[in-house]
Design a binder for these strands. Structure first.
Length: 423
RNA sequence: GGAGAGGUGGCAGAGUGGUCGAAUGCGCCGGUUUGCUAAACCGGUGAGGGCUUAUAAGGUCCUCCAGGGGUUCGAAUCCCCUCCUCUCCGCCA
């Protein structure tokens, strides 16, 4: 969430930003209601002050008659306060609905545009797209040929969008994880396996909406829990409500989790194979930083993603995400899109965002600077290290050979124990 | 899952209806003393928000003792619900 005061004082900026982000919100109504709320708040506080004064005077009353008189006065004030408070609560509820829908502000350098067609292509990886002197297969064909996947069994067990990985695919999944975690360990990230379920207030604090027809989130019936869509959710929740000493920042975490997504409304759009599935394993980077560290941290996270995919010898481009495609919490976002020969197109394999204090405000994650009064909101960032399902697509399709085998990239061989799959 | 105990400021830990935003100790900050450091001594020290105002200083008010609801003129304190922690038992990977 944005700071309420900031919205009031910068209504025009916020409106422009919402327009740039293609998010319809009624900022004017927010400002009007919030102005009313403040007035009402002052009235309620003043009544409280009076009631408090009356209560205090009762203890010192000199006789029973005076005590009773003061009590009556106290009752009257309380009734009055309750009536006003009801109005206030209704106002707050409406304000909150609008507030929640207002997205984060955008980095001044983020490309302005209504959707992903306005994303800016800013860099390419070290590996050129492969030129095949044969007809390349897509990952589904490759994996089925090599006995690496069973989609039918996945559908039988859990429905469309689920799958069994088998044989070398499992080794690859483990190797990819070990490779990514190893690199992050060297970079000072603390590895963590996280809960795969989270309370709905943690989901909401992170900017996910657990309910509603468009939700990406699976929720657990008769409970306040949902399956996480990414380790970003539990890692954000890790320090919810906490105040951290400033010298401990930045905190860099590496989350290992399963990710569950309903993919509601996504049918028919690039759904073949492992590209859009309901469950996958992901190694996620997450950072808590001081405000003046977050821009640099975003560049670090992006650089790490590039190193990971350069190491895997997978061709990719880096995209600076347009305002309309940023989602609610991100201030700036870079995606890596790997070349996928089977699709004949690039496909998103990572995404890293600087959420500034947008998540921290909701989750109440603060830091304290030694020698200074008060606390400040921390910044949060997240970035994909390896989303296994999509990394597999890019890896298999780019490293396939004319004879149907797949060359294992150098960096994974130690974990795979072989150089070629299907030989 | 069963039984019990408990959740208070950065930490430890008092506080069972009013003058308690909260004793005391530690820590931290400032000062005195001091070849230096330490010790000792003195003083200060929770957070969020509103109003005032120049988004200063100062003043002032409201809210916060796990979270939510209730009783009461008044709740850290009494009642109900939820969450969490600890100990023991059970069950298990």
């Amino acid at each position: 969430m944005l700071d309420r005061k900031f919205i009031l004082e910068n209504a025009d900026l916020v409106k422009t930003n919402c327009r740039n982000r293609n998010v319809p919100t009624d900022v004017d109504r927010f400002v009007a209601l919030e102005t009313q709320r403040r007035e009402l708040q002052v009235q309620v506080e003043d009544l409280n002050r009076q009631a408090n004064a009356v209560s205090k005077s009762i203890g010192k009353a000199k006789d029973a008659a005076e005590r009773e008189e003061r009590k009556a006065e106290g009752r009257r004030l309380r009734d009055e306060t309750n009536q006003l408070r009801e109005k206030l609560d209704a106002l707050v509820a409406e304000i909150d609905d609008i507030h929640r829908a207002i997205p984060n502000m955008s980095h001044p350098d983020a490309p302005i545009g209504e959707d992903d067609t306005k994303n800016l292509d800013i860099a390419h990886g070290k590996t050129p797209a492969p030129v095949f002197d044969f007809q390349p297969l897509d990952h589904v064909e490759l994996m089925e040929k090599l006995g690496m996947v069973d989609f039918e069994a996945g559908a039988r067990v859990a429905g469309h969008g689920f799958y069994f990985l088998k044989g070398d695919a499992v080794l690859l999944e483990l190797a990819l994880q070990r490779y990514a975690v190893g690199m992050l360990l060297d970079e000072g990230f603390l590895p963590m396996t996280t809960p795969d379920l989270a309370r709905n207030d943690v989901l909401e604090g992170t900017g996910y909406i657990p309910r509603g027809p468009e939700t990406q989130i699976y929720s657990i019936e008769n409970s306040d829990l949902s399956l996480v869509a990414t380790a970003e959710i539990p890692l954000g929740g890790l320090l919810a409500g906490e105040t951290i000493d400033a010298e401990q920042l930045p905190i860099k975490l590496c989350g290992i989790s399963h990710c569950f997504r309903t993919e509601a409304g996504a049918h028919g759009r690039a759904t073949r194979g492992l590209y859009r599935v309901h469950q996958f394993t992901k190694i996620e980077m997450f950072a808590f930083t001081l405000p003046d560290q977050s821009d640099a941290m975003l560049e670090q996270l992006r650089a790490l993603e590039c190193r990971l995919f350069d190491g895997l010898q997978i061709p990719y481009r880096v995209v600076d995400t347009a305002t309309g495609d940023l989602g609610g919490p991100a201030y700036r976002k870079y995606d890596l899109e790997a070349w996928m020969p089977g699709r004949g197109d690039y496909g998103e394999v990572t995404s890293t965002s600087n959420c500034t204090d947008y998540q921290a405000r909701r989750l109440n994650i603060r830091y304290r600077t030694k020698g200074e009064k008060g606390t400040q909101l921390a910044h949060t960032l997240n970035g994909t290290a390896i989303a296994v399902s999509r990394a597999l697509i890019a890896l298999l399709e780019n490293h396939q050979q004319a004879d149907g085998t797949i060359v294992v990239p150098e960096v994974l061989r130690a974990w795979m124990g072989k150089e070629v799959l299907g030989a």
